[in-house]
């Protein structure tokens, strides 16, 4: 197990290098002169030179990348070209908001998804099964922002049960979390259903019944533990998508998360901020994947041997 974790960590190194390289190149790959794009068309030659100097654009590319990495190692993501604030200071508080949002989205996705998936698998080909799976298809195909707007319209505007927007109060959690979690719930429900159906046909489930285990425990103990193994992977991936997919939900509900930050930064051509956000999101994604891999290993005792 330790060997596995160390090996997996070593494998992260090239991934992280790749991620930082891509993020670094964002500025280099902007069509035209990056400094011009950032400073705006009206900028004077001195102003442009100032921007280039600040961003280190005059150095050779490899030196720039080296400096970039050196800064990164000290958690220095540069400064916003708009406000002059360190990017780290801009990103950090919003990152927590997005993380919180993704977490609640995941809570919705996992609880609803698992519940519906098990429900459907339990009575295969029944009305309940078809109903659940039809709901899953609808949930999956509904555009995120539209769902958000509809929820807002019904529960905030019409019924007035919940606030329309913002973040911080517990009541403000519900609508964005449901908006984010619905598609994930649908994916997890389908995955759980097929994994459960596969596992229910396994010999050891029959053994559990032959032992006199109550049907409830046959399903929730013997079958579910095994069915969860592939589902965990999907859940981990969902969490990653939630982080990067928060943009829409944050816009709809006016939540000041990373998504909003990056959208605004793109609009204002504040590339250091874009770069910083991309790095933070990508590294989080990589980290989540690593955790999922380890978790998968812990759940699935059989892999250890090979």
């Amino acid at each position: 197990m330790h060997i596995f974790i160390i090996r997996r960590l070593l494998q992260l190194i090239p991934v992280i290098i790749g991620v930082t390289l891509v993020a670094f190149l964002i500025i280099q790959l902007i069509p035209g002169d990056a400094a011009q794009v950032m400073a705006g068309e009206a900028a004077s030659e001195e102003q442009l030179e100032q921007v280039r100097e600040n961003l280190g654009l005059n150095e050779p590319l490899y030196v720039q990348y080296g400096l970039f990495l050196a800064d990164l190692a000290q958690f220095d993501l540069g400064e916003s070209v708009r406000t002059g604030q360190p990017v780290m200071e801009l990103v950090a508080p919003r990152f927590w908001i997005t993380l919180e949002l993704a977490f609640w989205g995941l809570v919705v996705a996992v609880s609803v998804g698992l519940f519906l998936g098990i429900l459907a698998a339990n009575k295969q080909n029944s009305f309940r099964d078809f109903g659940t799976m039809a709901a899953a298809v609808i949930g999956l195909s509904m555009p995120n922002f539209w769902l958000g707007l509809m929820l807002m319209y019904v529960f905030a505007n019409q019924l007035g049960w919940l606030p329309t927007s913002g973040w911080g109060d517990w009541q403000q959690i519900f609508l964005p979390a449901i908006t984010m979690g619905t598609a994930g719930a649908a994916i997890i429900a389908r995955m759980t259903r097929s994994a459960m159906l596969e596992v229910i046909g396994e010999d050891y489930v029959r053994t559990a019944r032959a032992k006199g285990v109550k049907e409830r425990f046959v399903i929730y103990k013997h079958a579910l533990r095994n069915a969860l193994i592939p589902v965990v992977t999907v859940i981990g991936l969902q969490f990653g998508y939630f982080l990067s997919g928060a943009v829409l939900t944050e816009s709809v509900f006016s939540i000041n998360g990373l998504g909003r930050l990056v959208v605004d930064a793109i609009a204002q051509r504040d590339f250091p901020v874009v770069q910083g956000t991309v790095i933070v999101l990508a590294l989080t994604f990589v980290f989540v994947n690593f955790v999922v891999d380890v978790l998968y290993r812990v759940l699935n005792k059989r892999i250890e041997l090979n």
């Binding site: 050891y204 559990a208 032959a210 095994n226 759940l299």
Partner: peptide
Amino acid sequence: NRLSMIFQEPMTSLNPV
């Protein structure tokens, strides 16, 4: 309890987890 059964495939008849 009163009647029990063993199966052909000992490889797959025990729960792996």
